[in-house]
């Protein structure tokens, strides 16, 4: 035993434990009130703080051979890469097409707008071919025209 092992004092262990319990209480308390968009970042920040306390004191990286800290840090970095780069894909999926300057969502929004406008048109406005007008001609006089109108208006609504 050249350097011996660092024995973490009981006082430190109990102090860290106390902090962990307090942080658990804080994150539980904050969950009861609505923080809006900050909810997830705050909860994750508290969880990360707790994890750092456990890693540094309970797992003793603070007193340990630095190579273990390096190992752990590299692992955590790769977890970050894993999550970030997956979300780069999934969170923005369908945003950029390869045939148009517009984003896929913009095109979708335009199509939905056109669809809405088309549905708002009455059957009268949709008459374009001469045949449409011929069939509709007897409308004002005969009862058949009223039937057609009723059918048309229900279709248009």
């Amino acid at each position: 035993m050249s350097q011996g092992h660092h024995i973490i004092p009981q006082r430190v262990l109990l102090g860290v434990f106390g902090s962990l319990i307090v942080l658990t209480g804080v994150t539980y308390g904050l969950a009861q009130i609505n923080l809006g968009v900050l909810e997830v970042p705050v909860a994750l920040a508290i969880a990360s703080t707790k994890a750092v306390l456990v890693v540094m004191y309970f797992m003793a990286l603070k007193y340990d051979n630095p190579v273990n800290t390096l190992t752990f840090a590299v692992g955590v970095i790769f977890v970050g890469i894993f999550i970030t780069f997956t979300l780069f894909d999934t969170a923005f999926r369908g945003d950029i097409g390869n045939v148009s300057e517009q984003t896929v969502r913009e095109i979708q929004r335009e199509e939905e707008e056109l669809q809405r406008r088309q549905e708002a048109l009455t059957p009268e406005q949709l008459r374009v071919a001469p045949a449409d007008f011929e069939n509709a001609e007897p409308d004002p006089e005969a009862g058949t025209g009223a039937d057609a109108d009723r059918g048309g208006s229900s279709g248009g609504s």
């Binding site: 994150t27 909810e39 994750l44 969880a47 456990v54 309970f58 797992m59």
Partner: peptide, 22 residues
């Protein structure tokens, strides 16, 4: 053994807010 157990604890430290709280 302690290191392993602390890791199990750390995983739960993250599962708890993610599943129960937010």
């Amino acid at each position: 053994t302690g290191l392993y157990w602390h890791l199990v604890d750390i995983i739960w430290i993250f599962l708890y807010p993610m599943l129960y709280l937010v």
